[in-house]
Write a protein that binds this DNA or RNA. Structure first.
Lengths: 169, 169
DNA sequence: CTGGTCATGTAACCAGTTACATGATTAC
DNA sequence: GTAATCATGTAACTGGTTACATGACCAG
């Protein structure tokens, strides 16, 4: 009704997959799956049941080109982003509306209801959270620019938490 | 296999609903639905198709008590949190593991792939995001403590964005 | 020749979504 | 009496999840 662009917009996972291929160059579905499995977010599990159907979808929409890659001798299909794929990707990234959506933040959600915990338990919880935010959880095989972003993100998160708690007196 | 507690853990929406009832006191499913419809997060739409089945689930698990409230004369069922519900709620809030999960952050995801945008478009995007983060989007009927949290959250977000961009040189 | 990794997939399930439907009550 | 809101639901769909299955290839 209000989307004059192509059919429907990419999901977050679809966009991220497309972006990964755009950056890394042609790769197999398996390689993509493995990259997401190693991501620091528990939100994307990189499960086969998500990735393979997703690839099929993107292919069907003409956003991915698959050529049968006889790299050693094993049959595998190597995926690359198409022209249309790049356009769709740019639209997905540059979508400021979606970018500024609040998203899904389990810490924020819980902070909202902190007062429902008895004080002792609340303190234990906050200490625990603080410890975990301090831990430099950095999976080895993360994409190159993840670590920096992740680090800055964690810092921001600690600052936010502190600020919120301080202002609450 | 590793959860000695009761059956299964609450989803984020289930936890938030339980918490809302705990804070507000007994209310109808409709009232809950309306509260979530007005939330600043596009993530929770407060759709009937989500809320009503969810209520049934919580009731069936004994976390909610429903009494038929003949308030005027209209038949409606007024929901209140049970003893077991309070316990489950506390466990859900105090779950530091889930609280420190990265969650689902459309801005973070896109920042990761900023370099894939042509410079001009990147600049437009970032300006647009900045504007939107400045806008004091404050729905009228938010729960009392949302506004403050939301404000601090937006501030933190702007700081993070700036820090990330600065450090990128 | 055996176990790990590459590679691709499917089936059953789950918790959401949109869209629709129904009816009672209330405000004007 | 009529339109908005209160109140509750259902049906069809979607994009994930876990768990399972299959087979080729490679290193020891």
């Amino acid at each position: 009704m209000k989307l004059p662009s192509s059919g429907k917009q990419l999901t977050e996972l679809e966009g991220a997959v497309l972006a990964t291929i755009a950056r890394r160059g042609a790769m197999t579905a398996y390689a993509i799956k493995e990259m997401f499995r190693g991501s620091p977010s528990g939100f994307w599990s990189g499960s086969a049941g998500a990735v393979y159907p997703l690839i099929k979808r993107l292919e069907a929409r003409g956003l991915l080109d698959a050529q049968a890659g006889a790299d050693g001798k094993r049959a595998k299909s190597v995926l690359d982003i198409s022209k249309a794929g790049r356009a769709a990707l740019a639209d997905w990234i540059a979508d400021a509306g979606r970018a500024t959506d609040m998203g899904y933040d389990p810490l924020r959600t819980r902070m909202q209801f902190l007062d429902l915990l008895p004080p002792a338990r609340r303190k234990r919880f906050l200490d625990d959270v603080d410890d975990r935010l301090m831990a430099p959880v950095m999976p080895d095989e993360a994409p190159e620019n993840w670590p920096r972003l992740h680090k800055v993100w964690l810092e921001g998160r600690r600052n936010w938490l502190r600020r919120f708690l301080d202002r609450g007196k």
